[in-house]
Write a protein that binds this DNA or RNA. Sequence first.
DNA 1: CTGAAAGCGCTTACAG
DNA 2: CTGAAAGCGCTTACAG
Lengths: 336, 336
Amino acid sequence: MVSIKDVATHAGTSFKTVSRVVNNDPAVREETRVRVQQSIEALNYRPNSAARMMRNQKSGVIGFISDEVVTQPYAGDILLGAQQVASEHDKILMVVNIEHNRRRRQQSLDMLLERRVEALVLASYFHREVEVPPELSSVPSVLVNCFDSQASLAAFVPDDEQAGFDATQLLVDQGHKRIALISLDPAIVAAQLRLAGYRRALLQAGLPFDAALVVQGEEELGMTPGNCNAETAVANLMALESRPTAIVCGKDEIAMQVYFLLLRYGIRVGHEMALTSFDNQRLIAPNLSPGLTTMALPHLEMGRAALRYLFSAEADNSTRLIPFSVIARESHLLKA
Amino acid sequence: MVSIKDVATHAGTSFKTVSRVVNNDPAVREETRVRVQQSIEALNYRPNSAARMMRNQKSGVIGFISDEVVTQPYAGDILLGAQQVASEHDKILMVVNIEHNRRRRQQSLDMLLERRVEALVLASYFHREVEVPPELSSVPSVLVNCFDSQASLAAFVPDDEQAGFDATQLLVDQGHKRIALISLDPAIVAAQLRLAGYRRALLQAGLPFDAALVVQGEEELGMTPGNCNAETAVANLMALESRPTAIVCGKDEIAMQVYFLLLRYGIRVGHEMALTSFDNQRLIAPNLSPGLTTMALPHLEMGRAALRYLFSAEADNSTRLIPFSVIARESHLLKA
DNA sequence: CTGAAAGCGCTTACAG
DNA sequence: CTGAAAGCGCTTACAG
């Protein structure tokens, strides 16, 4: 590998002068600078970042531990947002993907720390509680889409309660009185919070809470959000004496199934049934007909906010709620 | 930051002995080893990888330039596969995401080269041709889900022609004689190849090729696969005097739209129309009813194969076709 | 404007 | 089994 000394020899100068040129030090004669620059190109010289790191005692690297965010649809936007802000601050991200595997997480953490990352981001592909390994406290760290039971670290999570409220309010605004909720696995944080938002919206609208209108559309799968099966949920709602006229679906995959399931009862979304949902899966929501009105997860914004926090040097360990945005298509409206 | 010397002082030994313990050199007395180990833990010492890199003249890092593979649904599996094989060889991946932006790609490349990556992977989120920057040739490099017009680099791409054949053959096997194809934007490599596979299957089955049965379900959007709009495509097929009894859909999003569009004509997938498709988007295919039979993109396997190639030290620059797998659900079958 | 010295934290031979 | 020397490629003061 060609080093600064090789360039110096080629340019007929001391290696210190080469260093000056590389670092844009103004104290170099123009003629010398040009000569050195030519040698750099001729030899295809590239500074060795390891040597720089060692002298500067800093790496310029931020570690990003991804718990499946890069392999789950659209959660990768967390990484995208983080990368945007990091690059504004001339830092680069070192990404390692772990699959909720403790041993792999520990290995990745050790590796990142040996590389002297200046900060750490731990991001999960769904909103959940995590156990924070103690090493995280050795550098500034932040959690994204997850939180620590001890609240020992700042966390950036989606505001699922507000989203639950908004998804319900959209239907309230259309005059619906019987609004059902097909809920996620109650073991999941988002399920609890979205349900709470649903109840708050009903309460505020003066509508009664009817437990029969809340059904579960996802099998219990421990802490992992799994495939849904809305068949029983829909059957239960259709068996009611007084059927709902609108449904808040726990996620877009459930909503998608509901479109098909309702057809068995001769009910069409957008005609006899209004629907809202969560996540804004771009693969699903715009391709349904009518288009699905859904609450978009703020992946990109969580990633950005988390990195902005790291650079702000704040020391406020609280959990920040990042709002969803309403993506209004047609499914919350009824056509004559 | 605590260094090897601090540990040596604490343990009352020379720093060289500490280095031996850290590197599991057997030539250390057990008693000394234990004492050093305790000091390492007491001081929370971690070897500085930059210093190691400088001495060893190698980084242990493989650069992974992701053209949106980490932000597009399931393409992240390329990264997952790459990471699996890399970690088997004790290498770690340094991932940078670019969004098909030349300047960003160049910056990322410079950064990775300054970090002395030992190899480079350039991966695209959809099968396409790319211009390979000349710097890629300075270290062993490989392309994933994309290829170079000059064929100057080994490339691992999905076998779209074979997938087109298989998707069609599934319907031929069910006795269909009039099989339509709703094609992708013809500017996309996959569209051409899948069409070729479709034609080969018809030919082999002795079925005539009818140009009226091939319609386009995606608007032209340059080189980027965009949202599809299958409405016109389906309308054209339904207007035919002799309608198809089966359709090969260019991708799962198109198939999803087709389920809904056919209902307007009183036609149900799985009853009056058989369907196959491509991609196996796990968000879509299992949630349709009937479940969508589709050809799964070999993302994980492409990532694995590419890294295996890098470690094999082969010098064969050819393009390798990685097979899709058939994910048979119910949509290719007709129920009475 | 240019250069010689020292040192960042390690490891690789070489002695003892 | 343990240690002193040299050097990886750079940058930071300090001279001139």
